[in-house]
Design a protein around this nucleic acid. Structure first.
Lengths: 212, 212
DNA sequence: GGTTACATGTAACTAGTTACATGATTAG
DNA sequence: CTAATCATGTAACTAGTTACATGTAACC
């Protein structure tokens, strides 16, 4: 799953491990990565040919940064290296991009994975993206059905409370997903399905609709 | 974490592995346990002295069942053994009960653990239980604060949608927890044990489990 | 006579976390 | 001068899943 996150971030631009870790932390709340997982993951990705790496010596780092963004230099006192240690900057390969697209579409039964898929689904074509959302929706619906099929058998108030919590959350998640799917259909009315019942109540869609 | 679930279930009565697995499945949606985790966990619990086990030969099983629950026998055609294989029936020890109480109070940063703690928090004293809920609440509030401190920096609609989802869920969870805490405070204005309903229900639920 | 449920286990794999080791640079 | 931040990595541990191995017995 880290693979998905790392490839997704690298698709936006080359990064070194330490920076990747910071981005992962801010990416999705609750997805705090540790170096102990990240560095071995990067090594694995490189062995499999999905990323390539280049060592950047400390004296070169300042130039790199400068050439990338010549503005914002004024605040810095000097063009001295930010780090005294060689960075390993990773770059996603073509095979890595293919693999990323696969990872973005697989499964639907894992919430944590779906969160990452959502975070990077802009790299999918609109129809693939819609398919992903529908897959997730089908999974949630099947969870709902399962929960309804055998309801709580316990009389303990805390256990009952727990089940009610689950129930509410599942319902809420479905509403949210439906909003997402509706937004997707509105901004992408072409494709194969001519669904007649979609834009009945579309006037307030707070989550921005147009993908880039 | 399986330890918590297993000890909690065994506190209600002795069980063998296969039955434990069924109960775990029905206990909390999403907490599907596999035998590959359960049996090693049971072995570990026994090594540490938290549970003890007794082998029950197939010809004895019918009697055991009968002596435990004399009702519900009518549906059965015979008093013949249900299994052709010796069961290993597990029993929680005193040390195991102590350990369970510890597990019920530790941490608050893990949702999955909190679910299990909630499922078995009836074994805690009312003040300890309230402390557990408050601990969880503090954790959720700190997550909220963290999310508000550095908001979404991405302009991608899907990433923004993901963050909104998180936000809504955290708010919803807090409301739910507050309801739980309020209920706890109402039924428990001071610190005194009013022993809530303790009634382990005897009923064989036909949970459609899948074979391994 | 084949499918399902009962029953216990092992092996290999997935997906991480926590703690440690090492060392440079920078801000107060 | 010391604490924080930058930077890369390893080792040991936690907490599981999936697939396999093995066999009985009840159901239809």
């Amino acid at each position: 799953m880290l693979d998905l996150a790392v490839l997704g971030l690298l698709k936006e631009g080359d990064l070194h491990g330490y920076e990747l870790n910071k981005r992962l932390k801010s990416l999705v709340g609750g997805y705090s990565t540790s170096f102990g997982a990240l560095y071995p993951a990067l090594a694995r990705l490189e062995r499999r040919g999905w990323v390539s790496s280049a060592a950047v010596a400390p004296e070169l780092i300042a130039d790199e940064e400068a050439s990338e963004g010549p503005a914002r230099r004024s605040r810095k006192r000097s063009a001295k290296p930010k780090s005294g240690r060689t960075r390993k900057v990773y770059h996603i390969t073509e095979a890595g991009e293919d693999h990323l697209l696969e990872l973005l579409q697989e499964d639907a039964n894992n919430e944590r994975r779906f969160r990452l898929q959502l975070a990077f689904c802009r790299f999918l074509t609109p129809d693939r993206r819609l398919a992903l959302f529908e897959l997730r929706r089908a999974h949630l619906v099947s969870l709902q059905a399962m929960a309804r099929r055998d309801p709580v058998q316990s009389t303990d108030p805390y256990v009952r409370s727990l089940f009610e919590w689950d129930q509410e959350r599942r319902e809420h998640d479905l509403v949210w997903l439906d909003r997402l799917i509706a937004g997707e259909r509105n901004s992408q009315p072409s494709s194969q399905t001519t669904d007649p019942m979609i834009d009945a109540d579309r006037s307030d869609f707070p989550t921005g609709g147009q993908p880039q």
